[in-house]
Design a protein around this nucleic acid. Sequence first.
DNA 1: CGTGGCTCCTGTTAGC
DNA 2: TGCTAACAGGAGCCAC
Length: 272
Amino acid sequence: MPELPEVEVTRLSFAERIRGARILGARLGKPLRWPLGLDPAALAGRTVLGVGRRGKYLLLQLDQGVLLVHLGMSGSLSFQAVQPDAGPHDHFDLATTRGVLRLHDPRRFGAVVWSASPDAPPARRLLAGLGAEPLEAGQFDPAAFHAGLKARRAPIKQVLLAGDLVVGVGNIYASEALFMAGIRPTARAFRLSRPRADRLHAAIRTVLARAVERGGSTLRDFSSATGETGYFQLDAAVYGRAGEPCPRCGTPVRQIRQGQRSTYFCPQCQRN
DNA sequence: CGTGGCTCCTGTTAGC
DNA sequence: TGCTAACAGGAGCCAC
């Protein structure tokens, strides 16, 4: 998916405009990862109070309940006054007095889930266990991060992806942050010294914050909910660049598999 | 209880 | 050019 920056850019692109809108109705397409958990007709008449984010989940706070939206691997949201007829991959429409929020998701790993509150069963199950918000002031603590890493035997790349220590770092930004910090992705998490954990902590924040500023620049086919494209420049240093020279030292970037996912790193700049 | 593997699904791309 | 297989941004779930 959409990693944290893309989700945040999406949120920023429609949160203000949808705030205060009254829901006119909802339409479901093919099944998503999880059922909505509510008769879509029951959403009519409710008001959208605001749009928050927890990790890669968007939370549409309603006057009664909350809608969790996850973009999965291939999801994107649009919010526009007038929507063309739904295509084969448009699986959720929320019609409001301000416009139609639409989830487009070819692979359908995404989901829209209704919950009575963020602490009620469906949302609670999905949100419990999520790690620290990396860009939220005071929530991503270096000492706690290092302590968390010390409890894990797994390769650092996979610990980052697990999302229970820090949220929002997906497959692209994990490679990018580890490159920036000069840490080999295969390094066992518990072996990272405090200084190196601190470097990684800073790199994660820098990489994610920069991507948010640039409007979610890592996705080849990403567009925000305003329908704007033009975020296509892939500014990755190593991700997707197997065989190309490392931007820092010129050594060819290497690609490996970790847990069925591709990892990219510079064997020269990233040692253990 | 941490870890690794599997799985959901469709579109794109690399390779022959 | 056409077919096939591999691969793609996630993450919950389930045996060890």
